[in-house]
């Protein structure tokens, strides 16, 4: 029974990734490409949050700091002349290092203190960057000449596919089991011999690694932006909304959440500005209150 369900999940994932990959072949235009890229970006970012928040139950509101440092480092190394894959990996390791520096001390905190402690870290990063790097980050002309959004989209798609695969593997591993155990009852987990602090650190490092990847892709896709943009707090808040609406602690849930989010954002961004966040807030509260398993939980009922 479990094996059959697994095959079904894999099939759904593969079909949806291939489907997204095929869309640009049939519908041309930068608008569609842009939306599909955002879909990949939000999938990676929300899965990175899902690893920590959905599987391990630790609410991390500092994801923007890790996303931002990934973007900053990737852009810097890429512009310095190294090939992009090197820069991307370096960027995600930079957010991993940041996680070791500030994340591990904050993990000693109890659950809700962890949430507000990481929020504090994200705000420190945002304000510091706003003051230290007030300008706009432009791509130099040499890199602009071979700018091609299609290639960039497919890079993002590959990274997204790898991320989903990684989360799928975590879901079915001992590590995933330990993470779910910690989420459900930290004391019981520790009593059954799970080294809670060690697993939390591993989880945080995995989570921030993927957040750094997402940041790197942001720096790869967008030609110019203010340095502080990838540090904005919405990069912390959006994944929380997406993951809970789709279904926390599942492989498919964040995909559904990201799809809803990108579509809603597109519909309302044109007509009414910020209404999408308002609607998402309302849906988010309703889901936390009445559907703790997210949209994906409807089916299982």
């Amino acid at each position: 029974m479990k094996a059959r369900r697994d095959i079904k999940t894999i099939l759904i994932l593969v079909i949806s990734i291939v489907f997204v990959g095929l869309i640009p072949l049939f519908i041309k235009g930068e608008y569609v490409l842009n939306m599909l890229f955002l879909l990949c970006l939000y999938t990676i970012l929300s899965h990175s949050w899902n690893i920590m928040g959905g599987y391990c139950g630790q609410i991390n509101l500092g994801q923007a700091a890790f996303f931002g440092i990934g973007a900053l480092t990737t852009r810097y190394i890429w512009v310095a002349g190294y090939p992009f894959p090197v820069a991307l990996i370096a960027g995600s390791f930079s957010s991993l290092i940041l996680a070791c520096l500030i994340g591990i001390p904050t993990l000693r905190l109890r659950a809700h203190y962890f949430a507000i402690g990481t929020l504090g870290v994200a705000m420190i990063a945002l304000i510091t960057i706003q003051n230290a790097l007030p300008g706009v980050d432009f791509l130099p002309a040499s890199l602009m000449s071979d700018y091609n959004p299609t290639i960039r989209f497919y890079t993002a798609l590959i990274v997204a596919a790898l991320t989903i695969f990684a989360v799928y593997c975590i879901n079915n591993s001992r590590l995933g089991l330990a993470m779910k155990c910690i989420r459900d009852d930290e004391e019981a987990a520790s009593a059954t011999g799970i080294n809670v602090v060690r697993y939390k650190i591993i989880t945080l490092m995995l989570s921030t690694f993927f957040a750094g990847l997402a940041g790197g892709l942001f720096a790869y896709y967008y030609v110019s932006y203010y340095y502080y943009v990838p540090f904005e707090l919405m990069w912390s808040f959006d994944p929380v909304l997406i993951v809970f609406i789709g279904g926390a602690g599942t492989v498919v849930g964040p995909l559904i959440g990201a799809l809803c989010y990108v579509i809603l954002k597109e519909i309302f961004a044109i007509s009414m500005g910020q209404v999408n966040v308002l609607i998402f807030g309302v849906v988010f509260i309703l889901i936390v209150l009445f559907l703790p398993k997210g949209l994906i939980g409807i089916k299982k009922r």
């Binding site: 609410i59 929380v240 909304l241 809970f244 998402f280 309302v282």
Partner: peptide, 13 residues
């Protein structure tokens, strides 16, 4: 944790 999540939604709204 749940009150944090709900009030966070309320903050956004």
């Amino acid at each position: 944790k749940n009150s944090l999540l709900i009030s966070f939604g309320l903050l956004l709204i």
